[in-house]
Design a protein around this nucleic acid. Structure first.
Lengths: 348, 348
DNA sequence: ACAAAAAATGTAAACGTTTACAAAACAGAA
DNA sequence: TTCTGTTTTGTAAACGTTTACATTTTTTGT
């Protein structure tokens, strides 16, 4: 159906090779031939076949992008950043959403290998037991560069780009401590999960740096979901066990906590302090003036793609880029003037 | 470098064809051969080459997905839905973000044609002048099904999936009218844009259905952005020209309006009524109890993918799926008890 | 044990490019 | 005109699969 290079050659009265040269902008082709070929290409609506080209050149122009949850704004921003740089460099994105499911991830990786991808950008489904991600070695053996995003993999010396989660949480916890808070209840999701580790470290380090002992009970485990931190916060409210400050270490965890606080009309910072890691558009819309450590996800995407490009152009050295999220102090960290624990909440 | 089907054949002591049969789960191959081949595949880490396969079968397993703005939650939800169905049906997603830029769209389409995609799911950059989208005919000629999402194209009989925007706005405008509102100021973005047309129609129809004349001045044009409706709302506040009800016809426009209202602490619905089209997670988090017509974007993605699958399996009839968004009445539509226009706002 | 039928296997061409190499055309110098 | 060097063009093999067809092997029935 679709026209091939042969049809063009025939129509233009030249050989296959000449057509190929014109298409690939080879300098060594006469003006006359070029014109004839371009004319034929136009008339027959010729568009080269990526499969034939890929096979012939033994090279793909696809990069794989795998994220756990595209509906999380953090990741959709990242995708946008990657997409932007990919576009500019003629690399196309084959996209997969894993839903935090290791099987889906494995399937995605398999497909990407079929496509002999140039490189991979991935936020792995690093679960609890960080089980041996053997695909890493598989790709290494095939000389396909991998750029890890936001989650590292156990004892791997892979290229990757991360936010300095420890420092982020250290900064914000320190601020809270300095503002007088001692019970800083932090939602940390699954403490065995890579996402959690550095954050917990930052929290502990902050207490240590201020010569304070820290109470492990103030680190609240749970799932990395709105629902999880929502329910926990709700329980704390109903049990009159509110701290002076809440700390949300991911945007999902922050949202759940805020949801409960708003449900019971507990004012920030009048009745309770709140600080969080990562920003959301909605904070701005509602003028919440939350004190946050903010990360620029789109920039992370761009830099991840650029790092991959560097690997593709031969840079062998292993790179880890650490982005430092910035602390924005907006007032929500102030010590509360009232104690909501004294209020009478209806139990459901 | 990577093992080929030849290597497997040699190692297993069978022919190419047999290896191919095993890989493709053809029934006509002996248990003995199957075992040998599987063993060899495993030992050599063989993974078939998608380019060779695609060329040989003259068929791709890629679908193109083009959206204007992935960071808009509406679209990231859609992508998730498409991805889910694609995964289940062994179709892979080559993804493009156009940034509402027609050139980027054109480039994306070209690349997708190179990949001889099975089908296309697209929310086109239908700009103001809805200039002739010739790629539609190009794809039709090539027999590649297109599924349009959320934005139709002028006089095309393409398959597509849409929300019934007219009915959505009709419903919600009617509700506001019935609640006593007469000045319902609606943000409509660019009135020349496809996105706007049906919404405006719904608004007018609602007034007409209630035998009321409608005031075109209450339809506020602007860009489809937070900033646009934010600035406009702010001006109305400062000029003491607030209506009794605001209507946000897209989530961006709603956010901008809400942002201004929150900035000046104008309470909903005590001081002003608000209703919107499309929901956001944040509304729930903050218990805004907004009266909304809600669309399920993820479902739209799933159905778009399913529609495409149907076309791929030969259904020739042209399908337009219209999803009816549901109205949720939560109180924000009530007639205000105070008039914020009487308050004294500081001018900036 | 043999023929016939069924099942398994193998051979080779095809898919649409790129590219190494060979050949031809052209230009300039003698 | 002829030679040389340069530029342009063409030929054919290669990339790794699938698949139609031919061939071989196995099974079944007598």
């Amino acid at each position: 159906m679709a026209a091939t290079i042969n049809d063009i050659a025939q129509k233009a009265g030249v050989s296959l090779a000449t057509v190929s040269r014109v298409i690939n902008h080879s300098p060594h082709v006469s003006e006359k031939s070029r014109k004839k070929v371009e004319q034929a290409v136009h008339e027959l609506n010729y568009i080269p076949n990526a499969y034939a080209r890929g096979l012939s050149k033994n090279q793909s122009d696809i990069i794989g992008v795998i994220v756990p949850e595209i509906t999380n704004p953090f990741f959709s921003e990242i995708i946008k950043g990657i997409s932007e740089i990919g576009d500019k460099n003629n690399l196309n994105v084959l996209f997969f959403n894993t839903d935090e499911n290791a099987n889906k991830e494995e399937r995605a990786l398999h497909i990407l290998q079929e496509y002999r991808i140039r490189g991979l950008i991935i936020t792995p489904v690093t679960g609890v037991n960080s089980y041996d991600q053997e695909y890493v070695r598989r790709f290494e053996r095939l000389n396909i560069p991998i750029v890890l995003m936001d989650r590292s993999i156990k004892n791997s010396s892979l290229d990757g780009i991360y936010f300095d989660d420890r420092t982020a949480i250290f900064k914000i916890t320190s601020l809270l401590i300095e503002k007088g808070h001692r019970n800083i209840t932090a939602f940390i999701g699954n403490p065995q999960h890579v996402v959690s580790k550095n954050r917990v470290k930052g929290y502990r380090d902050a207490f240590e740096a201020h010569s304070l002992s820290f109470n492990p009970q103030h680190l609240i485990p749970g799932e990395f979901s709105i629902e999880s931190s929502y329910q926990i916060t709700k329980q704390l409210i109903l049990n009159h066990q509110l701290p002076t400050a809440f700390l949300g270490t991911t945007n999902m965890l922050s949202m759940g906590c805020l949801k409960a606080l708003y449900e019971y009309n507990i004012a920030i910072p009048n009745e309770i302090a709140f600080a969080g890691y990562d920003k959301l558009e909605m904070y701005d819309v509602f003028h919440l003036n939350l004190t946050l450590v903010e990360k620029d996800a789109q920039e992370m995407g761009r830099q991840a793609a650029k790092l991959l490009l560097e690997k593709l152009s031969g840079n062998k050295s292993s790179n880890k880029i650490i982005l430092i999220p910035e602390l924005y102090i907006r007032g929500s960290e102030n010590y509360p003037t009232q104690n909501p624990n004294l209020r009478n909440f209806e139990s459901d």
